[in-house]
Design a binder for these strands. Structure first.
Lengths: 203, 203, 203, 203
DNA sequence: GATGAATGAGACTTCATTCAT
DNA sequence: GATGAATGAAGTCTCATTCAT
C-alpha cells in the first residue's frame, strides 16, 4: 500500500531490515528454510520477532527476498566472468565462482537444487530464476564455443549447472574433500565432451 | 523380502505396513519429508495414525526405511546396467535408468540431492549411501573405459551423478521438457570429455 | 463372567498371571503406576499385552490387585507382630516391619501415602484399606498400652503410621541414611509421648 | 475481560503468567501433576495453551515453579512460627500451620510426600528442598527444647514432619475428620516423647 | 518503526484398550 | 488361553502470525 506514484519503489532498507537480512543470509544459508525459525532469525539479528513481520510481512516473503539477494549476487559474478572473450576461460571462471559460492553459502545451493520441486513452490517464483538466469548465460557462452542445435542447448547447460552445483555441494560435505582443481576439471569434462563431439565456432 | 521357503502364505504379515510403505513412497516421493505429515500418510494408507507408530516407531524411522527402499531399488537397477561389458553402453543405460527413476519418484532425487547438507542428517545415514553407492559403481565402470588418476575418479563420478540427477529433475519440472534423448546426451558429454582427455583402457 | 457355581470363586492363577503379578510388583514397587506402561509390564513378564487384558481386564484392575496383594503381605506381618503380648515390644516390632517393607518395595509406601488423595480414587478402593487396616491394628495395640479417649485413638495411630511410613521412605532416598535404630526410636517417640501423657493400662 | 476503562491499564505485565500461576496452584494442589493437563490449566486461566509455553517453556518447568512457590509459602510461614521464643509453642504453631496449609492445598502435601521417590525426580530438585528446609528448621527448634545427640536430630525431625504431613493429609480425605485439636495433639506426642526421654535444655 | 505478549492450528508421539484369529 | 495388530483419544510442544501499545 502507499506505493510511490513513480520513481523506484525501492525498498528503503532500515537498520533492522539490514540486520535481518544478514542474519537470514547466514542462517538460511547454513541450515535451510525449514530448519530455521523466525524466532531464531530475529534473535540473531537482535530485533524482536514483530520486526520481521513489520519489515517483511511473512517468513516466506523474507526468505524470498534473501534468496533473491543471494541469486543476484551469484548471477552478477557469473555474468562478469562470462564476459571473458575466451569462452573456455569464461566457463572455467564461472565454475570456480560457483564452487566458491557454494562453499560460502552451502545451503543456498541446496535450496536452489532442491526447491525446483514444489509444483507450486511456495516462494519458488523467486527461486527458479536462479536456474534459468544461470543457464541462459551458460548457453550464451557455449554458443561462442561450439555450434549447438537449438534443442541441445538447454540440456547441455543444465547438465553443466547440475554437475557444478552438485559437485560443489559434495565438496562441502564429504570428508575427503576433493581438491578444488580436481572438482573443476570434472565439471568441465562436459565442456570437453562438447568440444569433442561438436563443430567449433572458431576453428 | 524373500518370503519363507515353506510356501505358507503367512500373509498375515502386516498388510498395513505395506500400505504405509506404498503411501509413503508416493507422498514422500512427491513432496518430501517436511511437507508430508504422519496424519496424511496414515490417511492415504487407510490406517490409523497409531498404526504408523506401531509399525515404524517414529516418523523418521519410517522415512528412513522408505528412503532406503527407494535407494535399494535404484541401486539394484543401476548395478545391473553396469554389468554390461561395454562401458559406454553401460553408462548410457545407467543414465537412462536414473532419468526414468527420477521421472517416477521426483522427490527422491530431490531428497538425495538436497539432504546431503545436514551436518548430522537426522535420517541421513540411510541417505548419503545413495550417493556413495552410486558413485562407487560409476567409478568401476569408468575404470573400464579410461585410465584415471586416483584423485580424478571420485570427482568425475560425482560430476556425472550430479549432472544426471539434476538434469533428470529439471525435466520433471520444466515446462519445455527436453526430450529424454537430448538429456541423456547432455549428461554423457562428461563421458565424451573423459574419453577426449584421457587414455582409453582399450584402444 | 463364568463364575463357578459355588465354592470359592478363587481366581485360579495361571502361569501368565503369576508372571504378570511378579513383574508388576517389581515395576510398580519401583516406579509407581503412572511411570509404568502396560507394554513394559507385559514385556518384563514375557507375555503379550493382550494377555494382561485377558487376565485382568484393565490396567487399573491389575494395579489394584497388585496393590492389594502388597497390602495383604504387609498387614499380615504387622498383625502377627501385634500379637506380641507386650504392647511396647509389639509396637517396636511393627515399626521394624514397616521400615523393612518400605526398604524392599519403596514405591508401595509412596503409593499408599500419596494415593489417599484422589477424591474418587481410580483404584483407591483397594488402597485406602491399607491405612485403615493398619491403624485399626495399631489402635488395638495402643489400647493395651495406655488409656485413650475414643477421639484420641485414630489420630494417634495415624500420626504413628505417618511417621513410620515417611521416615522409612526417607531412609530409602536420603544420602545420609539414618541408621535403622535411630529411625525406629524417632518413630516411637510418639509412643513415649503417649505414655508420658496418659494413664497406663497396666501399672 | 474487565479491562479498565481508562487510566493506564499498565497491568500489561504478564497478567497471563499470574493467572496461570493461580490456576496451576489450584489444579495442581487439588489433583497432582499427572492428573492435570496443560489444556486444562490454560483453560482455567483463561489463556491459550500456547501462552503456557510462551511463559514457562514446558509443563514440567511450570510445575516446578508452582511447586517452588508453594514451598516458599509454607516455609516462610513455618520459619516465622519457629521464631517464637518458647519452643513448645513454636512447635505447636508450626504444626498448626502445616495442617492448615495442607487443608488448603491438599495435593501439595501429597506431592511433597510422594515425590521424594523418583531416584532422579523430573523436577524433584525443586521439591526435595521442602523436606530439608522444614526439617532443618525443626531441628533448630528442637535444639532449644531438649538435648539431642547429633544422630538423633534428623530422624526426630523427619518423624515429626511425616506425622504432621500425613495426619494433615488424612484429615482432608477421611470421612470422620478428626478435629484439628486432636490431630495436633497426636502429632505433638512425638515432642512429648522427646521431653520424656531426654534432658531438657532449660530446666 | 518496533515490540513482545498472546494465539491456535497442527505436528509428533504415547498408551490403554479392543478384537479377530 | 493367548496373541499381535490396530486403534484413537489425549498429551506435549512448535511456530508463523497478529495486535495493542
Amino acid at each position: 500500500m502507499t506505493t510511490p506514484p513513480s520513481a523506484r519503489p525501492r525498498v528503503r532498507a532500515t537498520a533492522s531490515k539490514k540486520r535481518l537480512f544478514a542474519a537470514s543470509m547466514q542462517l538460511l544459508g547454513a541450515r535451510g528454510p525449514n530448519a530455521v525459525s523466525v524466532d531464531e532469525i530475529a534473535q540473531m539479528a537482535g530485533v524482536s520477532k514483530g520486526t520481521v513481520y513489520y519489515n517483511f510481512g511473512s517468513k516466506d516473503e523474507m526468505i524470498g527476498q534473501v534468496l533473491e539477494f543471494g541469486a543476484d549476487m551469484l548471477v552478477a559474478e557469473l555474468d562478469q566472468a562470462a564476459a571473458n572473450p575466451k569462452p573456455r576461460e569464461a566457463l572455467r571462471a564461472m565454475a570456480t565462482i560457483a564452487v566458491e559460492f557454494v562453499e560460502k553459502y552451502p545451503s543456498f545451493a541446496q535450496i536452489w537444487i532442491s526447491e525446483q520441486l514444489r509444483p507450486e513452490s511456495d516462494w519458488g517464483d523467486q527461486i527458479t530464476p536462479v536456474y534459468s538466469r544461470v543457464t541462459s548465460t551458460l548457453v550464451e557462452v557455449l554458443d561462442r564455443l561450439v555450434i549447438l542445435a537449438p534443442e541441445e542447448k538447454q540440456p547441455a547447460a543444465t547438465a553443466i549447472f547440475g554437475a557444478a552445483l552438485f559437485s560443489a555441494r559434495m565438496r562441502t560435505v564429504s570428508d575427503n574433500v576433493a581438491d578444488r582443481e580436481a572438482t573443476l576439471n570434472a565439471v568441465l569434462y562436459s565442456v570437453e565432451g562438447l568440444l569433442a563431439t561438436h563443430q567449433h565456432v572458431v576453428p
